[in-house]
Amino acid sequence: MSASALMSRQGAVAAADPDEGVAAHYGEPMHEQRALEQGRAVVDLSHRGVVTVTGADRLTWLHSITSQHLNALEPGVSTEMLVLDPHGRVEHAAAVIDDGATTWLITESGTAAGLVAYLESMKFAMRVEVGTRTDLAVLGTSAHGPTIDGALIQWRDPWPVTAPGSTRYGPDDHEHPGAQWQGTLWLVQREDLPAAASAAEGAGARLAGVWAWEALRVATWRPRHARECDERTIPHELDWLRTAVHLEKGCYRGQETIARVFTMGRPPRRLTMLHLDGSEHITPDPGATIMHGEREVGRVTSVVRHHELGPVALAVLKRSVDPEATLSVEGLAAGQETIVTPEGFGTGRPPPQDRPRPNPALRRRP
């Protein structure tokens, strides 16, 4: 994707993959982060993809092939969905909102084409049409931040409120750090992006880079497909069932794994937050190996400098790693803050069935 029109703003510093095309910051990353947290900033997320689904069967069809309960989705209600492979591994993730005529899907940069290809392959005789809207751009604000005049759609992140029919592998909703900040995505015409940002600035907001968005995402333990997922990721490991997976809907690809791991418990890995030693003024890169002594126990997925927490990271660890253990990342000490519990059981899990012990006499040979 070509660079955003807002990259011409004074002080703009280009972001790296997976956020190429927009600004990491505009010269004052910590000030931008505080402003976003306080509802006084707008973030250029115009590298995100936008997919539309229209037609009479759109919601029942999406309901049948994704992780989310969508066939009764009311217009204007924000949710999110995952597309899983047959083994329950995450292939695509999208923010979802319907306006009564169109279901809008907001995806990671560079993934819209892949999502459209999958959806097209599943159409069969359904009355649906799938398209990509490259003429639209995404802006981000705090939920209590500025209003983007002229926006086509406003999506409010449901994270971390555990949806009806879902489960959580982390703390109660009211104790979750995500309860302190909620992001909102706005869709605007791409040609109107500079004017929309300027209007928000005129109303008292400032332009913030994607580093600010990422810092608040990490601080609220919000998983991101482009960062926390690899080819083995199942949603239980990231506590993603709470907002993206419905446990009481019909069959869809990957459902068997979702149900089995929920019922039996113990996903193989778990998401955690790492508080990194900041005395060296360096941070590891995403993908860095995490060690416990001489043993490799996981990888870093996201790294930020938070204006209050300092250098912190999200990481995926082996579930069995002692949550009290001090770990190391490229020589830096890293203390853990538990996100997904090491016990590996979601709320509402059915009680285990007592199995009768086999009678030894039945196995005796004459």
Rank of each mutant, 00 (worst) to 15 (best):
M1V: 11
A179F: 07
H306R: 06
D354A: 15
P223T: 00
Y118S: 03
W221E: 10
T243I: 06
H292V: 00
C251D: 06
M264D: 00
E343L: 14
L247W: 07
Q189D: 15
T233V: 09
R266F: 10
L276V: 05
L45D: 05
T341Q: 15
G265Y: 03
R190E: 14
G27V: 03
E308P: 04
L84P: 05
A3G: 13
T141F: 07
A315E: 05
C229M: 12
E191Q: 15
I106M: 10
V83F: 03
D85P: 05
S2E: 15
E37H: 14
V130C: 09
R266V: 11
G170C: 08
A333H: 10
H63Y: 10
A12K: 01
N71A: 15
E280G: 09
R227C: 13
L59H: 13
V245E: 01
R270T: 05
R168S: 09
A113G: 15
P311W: 03
A219Q: 02
L70Q: 05
G100S: 09
W186L: 05
G250Y: 05
S302K: 03
L332K: 09
I97W: 01
A3R: 12
R58F: 06
E20P: 01
I97M: 08
V138D: 04
L247R: 01
Q154A: 14
S8V: 12
I339A: 07
D135K: 03
G114H: 04
Q189V: 07
L119G: 02
R190L: 01
L136D: 06
L70D: 03
S121T: 08
A197I: 09
G178I: 04
V245N: 02
G183I: 03
M122R: 08
R305H: 12
H275N: 15
D135I: 00
A226F: 07
